[in-house]
Structures are given as structure tokens and as C-alpha cells.
């Protein structure tokens, strides 16, 4: 098998680029905790409203610098009353669904979480800028999918 000299140069460049990409995202993900949303917690999708923390959805202050926001997604809206969180503090979002698959996506942030029934999706995020952020569902969930939205206020 014969590789032209230039093909060797090209493939070396390509492979090195790919390794650099992987290293950048890998190091940032695992050493600085920038992993995408996820989590291994499970929940009974029919008992969501009786299971903590979703029995009391909304914002809870965990300690000085950490807040937890529990949200129940359902066709076609979010059960998440009074979403107001401070800027500059770590916000831990926990989302689950009582029916089909949804997403919990906050516009212009890294919060873009798939919400799967039977599972709890977790994402930690710190808002820099105060303001009112649009929350929307970007996974098809039925006729009202494009109406499924909410708002979170950062103060």
C-alpha cells in the first residue's frame, strides 16, 4: 500500500487536528467539569410528583453559592413555578418528564438538556448576565411542541 508523500503530510495534519480537538474538549470536560448534561439517576415516570425533588418543583437554595432548580417537563409545558435565580452562583438543574421525551433548553446558554421519562437529567450552569431567558423544548413531543416554553429570570 502506497501513500503519496503529500497524502502522508495531509493525513498527519488531519489526525493531529483531530487529536487536538479531542484533547481540548476532553480536558475541558473532565478536568474543568464541562461535561454535557446527563446523569445516571432514575425515577418512576408515573410517580414523579411524589418523588423528591420533583414533589416540590422550583428553586431551592442548597448552600451559599449553590441553587437547585427542579423542573417537571410535560406535554406541552414545564411545571416550574417562579423561576428566579441569581447570576454568578452555581445553578444545578434537575429535569424529568412525566410523559414523552422533551428537552429543557435555555436560550443563549450551555443548558441544552434532553429530558427522558424514567431518568433525571442534571446540568450545572452559572449565569453571568442578569436578564430574562427563554426556555424552550427542542425535542419533538407532539402537536403543541412549538408552544412548549417558559422563562427564567436571572437577577
Amino acid at each position: 500500500m502506497h501513500f503519496h508523500k503529500y497524502e502522508k503530510i495531509w493525513l498527519s495534519f488531519g489526525i493531529v487536528s483531530l487529536i487536538v480537538f479531542l484533547s481540548v474538549v476532553g480536558v475541558s470536560a473532565f478536568s474543568q467539569n464541562h461535561t454535557p448534561s446527563g446523569g445516571m439517576d432514575t425515577i418512576d415516570p408515573e410517580k414523579v410528583n411524589e418523588t423528591a425533588p420533583f414533589d416540590n418543583p422550583g428553586v431551592t437554595q442548597l448552600d451559599e453559592d449553590t441553587y437547585q432548580v427542579a423542573i417537571v417537563a410535560l406535554a406541552f409545558g414545564y411545571n416550574a413555578p417562579d423561576l428566579r435565580v441569581p447570576a454568578g452562583k452555581e445553578i444545578i438543574f434537575k429535569v424529568t418528564s412525566t410523559d414523552v421525551v422533551h428537552s429543557f433548553t435555555i436560550d443563549n446558554t450551555k443548558v441544552n438538556m434532553m429530558v427522558v421519562p424514567g431518568r433525571v437529567t442534571t446540568k450545572s450552569y452559572t449565569f453571568d448576565e442578569p436578564g430574562k431567558y427563554l426556555i424552550l423544548c427542542n425535542e419533538y413531543c407532539g402537536t403543541g411542541h412549538h408552544m412548549m416554553s417558559a422563562e427564567i429570570e436571572v437577577y
Binding site: N112, R119, T121
Partner: peptide, 21 residues
Amino acid sequence: HQLTEPGISNFWKFLQVVLTF
């Protein structure tokens, strides 16, 4: 295709990212 969803740990997601590359 499932990087932002629950039920798959980060290790397995990242392993398949490497294989994708």
C-alpha cells in the same frame, strides 16, 4: 447523537466520541 441525555455515563459518551473521530 445522545450526548446531552441521561442514562449513559460520560466515559462511554466520550469513548464513542473518540471512535467517531
